[in-house]
């Protein structure tokens, strides 16, 4: 199509502005994180790595970081395992209550997190699971499984059933069909689901705030609590670190398996 030069320029400008709009908060946080003053303000007067040093010396942050990492890893693995089983059931078998399972799987998408949080507090309190690892892991599984079901189901639907049948006819037991054929073919969906579940868990604040207290506080809740008492560039520095971690996870996986193909 022929486009006039001014139109082309206007289009570029629009795209550019959109990016600036989307990235502005991140850019500002990035700049502020190097500020030397003890309160958040823009633009900075002088720059240093001081806030980063303080973040890495903050024992609360560091232990919350490791907790978040552990919880995220467990949630990622768990959500992918459960998500794969649910996807298999939904795409490969007809069973009673299929509709109910389908609904349960999308429910967390439509119910506001704050409502989920209140509900989870009531349920988990009943089992004495508030402020425990199992409690927070269960809560995060609840919100991440829908995503893993989605990614794994997508992969499963793209697997040619004839290929599985061919394996069966040529002597593979149903377990071997899954292990040798289906699983390798849906691996991209499984890895993508796991990564998304990890990132959501690592990032989740609203629901976690209801459930955790001191013993199982995650990094986002720790940041939230810190913000209640002080606002200084440490928060900006920590945010930058978190962004870098998320980006690093995505880039590494993109390199390894081509994440984009999987989602």
């Amino acid at each position: 199509m022929e486009t006039s030069l001014p139109a082309k320029f206007a289009w570029r400008l629009l795209i550019g502005l959109l990016y600036v709009f989307l990235l502005a908060p991140i850019i500002i946080v990035f700049v502020v994180s190097f500020d030397t003053r003890q309160y958040l303000a823009f633009p900075p007067e002088s720059l240093s790595f001081g806030s980063y040093v303080k973040v890495f010396q903050n024992a609360d942050f560091i232990s919350a970081f490791w907790r978040s990492l552990l919880i995220g890893a467990i949630v990622g693995l768990g959500a992918v395992t459960v998500g794969t089983l649910i996807s298999l059931a939904l795409t490969r078998y007809r069973f009673r209550g299929e509709g109910a399972v389908n609904f349960l799987v999308i429910a967390p998408f439509i119910v506001p997190n704050i409502v989920l949080g209140v509900g989870l507090v009531l349920v988990l309190a009943g089992f004495g699971l508030l402020d425990t690892y199992p409690g927070i892991v269960l809560a995060h599984l609840g919100i991440t499984i829908p995503y893993t079901v989605r990614t794994v189901s997508m992969s499963l639907m793209s697997v040619d059933r004839r290929v599985e049948e061919a394996a069966l006819v040529h002597g593979a037991s149903p377990f071997n069909v899954f292990w040798r054929i289906t699983l390798p073919l849906i691996r991209p969906g499984i890895i993508a689901g796991g990564v998304i579940a990890f990132l959501i868990s690592f990032d989740e604040t609203t629901i976690s705030l209801f459930i955790v207290s001191v013993r199982s506080s995650t990094l986002p809740t720790e940041i939230y609590r810190y913000l209640e008492y002080s606002t200084d560039p440490q928060i900006a520095a920590l945010s930058v670190v978190l962004i870098l971690i998320s980006v690093a996870v995505v880039i590494v996986l993109e390199r390894l398996i081509g994440l984009r193909k999987a989602v």
């Binding site: 040619d160 004839r162 290929v163 049948e165 061919a166 394996a167 069966l168 006819v169 040529h170 002597g171 593979a172 037991s173 149903p174 054929i181 390798p184 073919l185």
Partner: peptide
């Protein structure tokens, strides 16, 4: 069961294992 019937099958779409 299917996997114990000792048959071979060539599918219309071939159904080779792509991986």
């Amino acid at each position: 069961p299917v996997h114990k019937r000792n048959m071979g099958m060539v599918f219309q779409s071939y159904a080779l294992f792509p991986h």
